[in-house]
């Protein structure tokens, strides 16, 4: 898949907001039929990056290319290919669900063909047909998100931006959105996704770009990103302060950094070799070993390192 030319490619994106460099040289690429997960803790620059990518903000430096063409030469043409589902609901409250889709279609040229049929298709596909005549505020959170995604698709875009599409939804509604995203990927849409839910990123993303403090700190498949950034194993242990100090010193001498703590338990990402060393160094210690996940990565980036 990655040998194909990228649908969207950004190089060296920089953005200053309020005098602060919030995006600092971000590179990323998204291919057709691929979900690119854009991850990072709060303030990492995800939403700003996304907003530059879909033309809401202008980059201070860097280039954005769509199918190898510089989008700044014809932003309007580029935006015709984009569907955007923002983090917050931005429905048109003066219109019904159906009218929201119709009015969104009127904001694109060339005009989407056969809008009435397209709207009907989307209402069916997103299970919104029952609510077609209702105002969006009458919908539940899950159906509102469905409407947001449906609206982003009304003009048949080739690239879809989903900014935290399932935030605030119950598990059932989240799974329903996942199914929809999966179906859109299968149809060949490129999808750029930001989310705070690591299980969601892991399940949906074909590739991840991880941001921290405005910079890309890792990129690749979820598995390779975890391997590169965390190692193959995570040791979870609870110990007294004395033992923790000894372990911290052991980690320090090997240059392994500091563990992150959750509710008093330490989580130590280690490679297979390091785990073997750890087991030899602390034979009497009781601990659990589990595979790393994106939560670990997220916490490693987001939490301040805990002191011994």
């Amino acid at each position: 898949m990655t040998s194909m030319p990228a649908l969207l490619e950004a190089r060296g994106l920089v953005k200053h907001l309020g005098g602060r460099r919030v995006v600092d040289g971000v590179d990323l690429a998204c291919h057709a039929g691929q979900v690119l997960g854009l991850l990072g803790p709060n303030g990492a620059g995800k939403t700003t990056t996304l907003r530059m990518l879909y033309g809401f903000l202008t980059a201070d430096a860097g280039t954005i290319r769509f199918e190898d063409a510089d989008v700044s030469r014809d932003v309007g043409r580029f935006k015709r290919q984009l569907g955007v589902c923002t983090q917050d609901d931005t429905f048109d409250g003066d219109f019904t669900v159906r009218q929201n889709l119709e009015i969104a279609a009127s904001y694109f040229r060339p005009r989407p063909t056969d809008v009435r049929r397209r709207v009907g298709e989307l209402l069916e596909r997103f299970s919104l047909a029952t609510y077609a005549g209702d105002k969006p505020e009458a919908l539940s959170g899950g159906f509102r998100r469905r409407l947001m995604i449906a609206r982003a698709l009304v003009h048949r875009p080739r690239l879809l931006f989903l900014d935290e599409p399932t935030t605030g939804l119950d598990p059932q509604a989240r799974v329903a959105v996942w199914d929809l995203v999966n179906g859109l990927r299968a149809e060949g849409l490129g999808i750029v996704l930001t989310t705070h839910y690591m299980d969601e990123a892991e399940r949906l993303s074909d590739a991840l770009t991880v941001l921290a403090q405005g910079k890309v700190v890792a990129h690749g498949t979820p598995k390779s990103v975890l391997g590169d950034m965390l190692g193959e194993h995570v040791v979870v242990l609870e110990a007294d302060d004395v033992t923790k100090r000894v372990i911290a010193a052991w980690l320090d001498t090997r240059g392994l950094g500091e563990p992150f703590a959750i509710l008093g338990a330490w989580h130590l990402p280690l490679s297979a070799e390091q785990l073997a060393d750890f087991a030899r160094a602390f034979p009497a210690l009781r601990y659990e070993v589990r595979p790393p996940n994106l939560d670990d990565l997220f916490l490693k980036l987001a939490l301040a390192p805990c002191a011994a």
Binding site: Y54, V75, R80, D88, T90, F108, H155
Partner: peptide, 14 residues
Amino acid sequence: YQRTWEGQLTTQIE
């Protein structure tokens, strides 16, 4: 309040 503009700005409307 209605955030109509934000919705419009995600399209070809500048």
